[in-house]
């Protein structure tokens, strides 16, 4: 069975192809705004690149469009105008070829691709991206959110601080580079509430430091504080739910320091930790195709995009326990 999956929830338009549960193509193109995302521009970007990305994925996989048995698309959560692109293209392709279309929850796709690469059966997942910051654990037939941000996503916080420091979007890589040169820890609010975290107070606090402290020390203190909060929340979820492995996924999982912290935390509690390949940590089409493959027997009635699609809204029928 060959599945083609389309991802278009935010900045990235991605196409992945999976054959009998194995990834055989993963192509993408990412919209890079000067500042924050402009939904209409992101949508136009996705429509512009869609034909060539689909073509590239088919060539990489060495299959024809007529070989595709099932289509999957990222149904949400995401930006409505962006979600629309994936929905319309995949609906058109599936209608034309009379093949089934599956709507995939974007957060669950991140978790499934992390399980695919790490081989961990039942990990705690720390999902960190621009818009999302969640701690997800599988329990009683659903992926349940045990902790999440009470305001903005951690990637969003990093981008906002970056913008205040005149760093172009996405600010993550540059902030990471600056942080390596920082050495002075400046106290920043450390806000953890149960397994939830909150970042908006940190943004306000940091903006007041700009000009008074060096960019290197600000970046260093920002990373050390927010990543410690995230790893602490993840550890709480592991202790609370009695789970012995951790995966970190989402765009912010590209950060080496965050992975290092996750690794140390797991070592100290005799738990397992593995990084997932960078290409599959950020938004990608392969995770949608792969999760579509897992969900191939689902009968879905409403396939329209769901902007606020919650992780725990999906019943996980393909897992054995």
């Amino acid at each position: 069975m060959i599945v083609l999956g389309i991802e278009s929830t935010a900045h990235t338009f991605g196409v992945g192809i999976v054959k009998d549960g194995k990834i055989i193509a993963n192509e993408r193109d990412t919209y890079k705004p000067k500042e924050g995302i402009i939904p209409r521009e992101a949508m136009e970007h996705h429509y512009d690149v869609a034909p060539s990305i689909i073509q590239r994925a088919l060539e990489k996989a060495n299959v024809k469009l007529s070989d595709i048995d099932l289509y999957a698309y990222s149904q949400g959560p995401g930006i409505p105008s962006c979600l629309r692109v994936g929905y319309e293209i995949s609906r058109y392709l599936s209608n034309k070829s009379k093949k089934k279309l599956i709507g995939v929850n974007h957060s669950i796709a991140h978790l499934e691709i992390a399980r695919y690469f790490t081989g961990f059966d039942d990990p705690v997942m720390l999902y960190v991206s621009g818009g999302n910051t969640q701690i997800i654990v599988y329990k009683e037939g659903k992926y349940r959110v045990f902790g999440e941000t009470q305001d903005i996503g951690v990637g969003n916080l990093i981008d906002r601080v970056g913008r205040a420091l005149n760093i172009p979007f996405p600010a993550g890589p540059k902030i990471e580079e600056l942080a390596k040169k920082g050495s002075k820890y400046i106290e920043i609010p450390y806000v953890i509430k149960g397994m939830d975290v909150s970042f908006s107070g940190i943004e306000t606090h940091i903006k007041k430091l700009i000009g008074k402290e060096s960019a290197e020390n600000i970046a260093y203190s920002l990373q050390e504080t927010v990543f410690s909060m995230l790893i602490e929340a993840a550890e709480r979820a592991m202790a609370y739910c009695n789970k012995d492995s951790l995966v970190i996924t989402g765009g912010v999982a590209a950060n080496k320091r965050l992975n290092e912290m996750g690794k140390i935390m797991c070592e100290e509690r005799n738990a397992k930790f593995k990084e997932i390949p960078l290409e599959y940590a950020g938004d990608n089409g392969a995770m949608i195709a792969y999760t579509g493959y897992l969900m191939k027997d689902y009968e879905q009635i409403d396939l329209k995009p769901i902007r606020n699609y919650r992780t725990d809204a999906v019943e996980i029928k393909y897992r054995k326990w």
Binding site: G76, P77, E148, Q150, D151, N308, Y309, R310
Partner: peptide, 14 residues
Amino acid sequence: DIEKRRRYYENSNY
């Protein structure tokens, strides 16, 4: 208010 502030609260449809 806190319920609503979270990004994906229940019963919020597209």
